[in-house]
Simulated assay, not measured.
Amino acid sequence: MIGYVLPGKPIANLLFKIYGRISTIHALSFLADLKLGHYMKIPPRCMYVAQLAGTFVAGTINLAVK
């Protein structure tokens, strides 16, 4: 898809592909954690809030390091 929008730019194509892959891997990891919480009978809202808080902390730390 991005190859048609930006032809002749391999770096843009690779970045688009990597961004899509990383997003997919993080989404699958998030779902696996929610599934584990379901098996442990932890309420979904608590699991979601914990995941969201962890995401904000990790994002803040990554931003601070850069």
Rank of each mutant, 00 (worst) to 15 (best):
L15F: 10
P43K: 13
K9T: 07
N62R: 05
G54N: 04
L63K: 07
V65T: 01
Y19Q: 14
A12F: 03
G20R: 01
L34M: 10
S29H: 07
N62P: 01
K17M: 08
T24H: 07
K35M: 15
I11K: 08
A27Q: 11
I18H: 00
G20F: 02
L6C: 06
G59P: 01
Y48M: 12
L52C: 12
I11G: 02
L6N: 04
V49A: 10
I2M: 03
F16I: 05
P43C: 04
Y48R: 09
I18W: 04
F56H: 10
Y4K: 09
L14N: 12
I42Q: 10
L31G: 01
N62H: 04
F56Q: 07
R45L: 15
M40E: 15
Y39H: 14
Y39G: 08
L52P: 02
G20D: 03
S29K: 06
I61D: 01
T24R: 05
A58G: 01
L15C: 09
Y48L: 14
L6Q: 01
L63A: 09
G20S: 03
M47N: 10
A12Q: 11
G3N: 06
K41F: 12
I2W: 04
K66E: 02
L6F: 12
M1Y: 11
I42G: 05
R21D: 14
F16E: 00
S29M: 05
M40F: 06
Y39T: 13
I25K: 11
P43A: 14
I25V: 11
T24Q: 15
K66Y: 07
K66N: 06
A12P: 02
I61S: 04
V57H: 05
L36W: 03
I61A: 03
G3F: 03
C46V: 13
N62W: 07
A64Y: 11
K35I: 15
K9G: 01
F30Y: 12
A58V: 05
S29E: 11
L52I: 07
V5F: 12
G37H: 00
R21I: 10
A32T: 02
L31V: 09
A64K: 09
N13F: 14
I22F: 05
Y39W: 14
Y48F: 13
K41D: 12
T60A: 10
A58K: 08
K35E: 12
V49C: 05
V65W: 00
L14E: 13
Y48S: 10
A12S: 10
H38L: 11
K17Y: 06
A50I: 15
P10I: 10
I22V: 13
N13C: 12
I2C: 03
L14P: 10
M1H: 00
I42C: 05
V49P: 00
F16T: 03
A53S: 13
S29A: 07
Y48P: 00
I11Y: 08
I18Q: 07
G3M: 09
D33Y: 02
G59R: 01
A64R: 06
L34H: 04
F30S: 01
N13Q: 15
I22C: 03
R45P: 00
